[in-house]
Design a protein around this nucleic acid. Structure first.
Lengths: 126, 126
DNA sequence: TCCCAATATCAGCATTCGTGAATACTTGCC
DNA sequence: GGCAAGTATTCACGAATGCTGATATTGGGA
């Protein structure tokens, strides 16, 4: 299908694919916050925070509203929070699954010697 | 909150944050496919495809099943498809929004000269 | 055993990303 | 205007990522 679609789609995903930006989004989850707030909550330095916010702003993930000398940021679309939560669920289920697999190896034998399913033990967070 | 959480979360997001991987996931949407299939459908070279699949495998995004000389890949968790679709919706709504904003500028004046809301016209796909 | 098809991995290179430091803008106030 | 607080931008550089070509591994026949 169209090539631009996947590019735009991944651009949006990239805007979420960073631990600090995840922290920021989590901090914005319950409503808007000023940059100063975010510095406090996340512990990220102002300049760096501003860079991440700028990135997410140009990607349409967050929106900004100025009030006096402060700028308040908020998440642009609640569906992003739904997506965030879905990813969280996948993550948790995936972790459970790996523990289970590591405990009872048996029917994975068809793949176990083929280099196809070696990630269960040591690569789980690399 | 916990720091590892956001790291893991972003790891999973990173596994989705790439246009070729998005193509691959879209191709796997309706069921499993062999690597050869995927080469045909996506046009990605075999070596590169294999690397992307390997990455997604170690991140728990896809699972592999060997049958003879072929390996069939499939998406590990249907929630990833839901997340994919949510992102798509956000993307589309965001694009609509920008077109609208670009058409009728007026109440954005509070931010327009502050460098806070400059992305509407030319950065929409950078 | 030798060969072939299918998949995986490696080495090297180019590009992108993340960060801190320094600096520039904006706004409100004196 | 000058100043201070709050926020944004630029630069430089190390680290991570993506791609290609070459090579290795695996499984199934002849």
């Amino acid at each position: 299908m169209e090539d631009d679609f996947y590019c735009l789609h991944s651009q949006l995903c990239k805007a979420l694919a960073n631990d600090k930006r995840q922290m920021i989004l989590a901090a914005l989850r319950d409503g808007e916050r000023s940059v100063l707030d975010l510095v406090d909550v996340t512990g990220i330095r102002q300049a760096n925070l501003s860079q991440h916010l700028s990135l997410m702003r140009t990607r349409g993930v967050v929106v900004a509203r100025r009030e006096g000398t402060r700028v308040y940021y908020s998440i642009s679309n609640q569906k992003l929070i739904q997506a965030f939560d879905l990813i969280t669920e996948v993550m948790e289920e995936s972790l459970e699954g790996r523990v289970r697999v590591a405990g009872s190896i048996g029917d994975a034998s068809a793949l176990s010697q083929s280099g196809v399913n070696e990630e269960a033990s040591d690569e789980s967070r690399s």
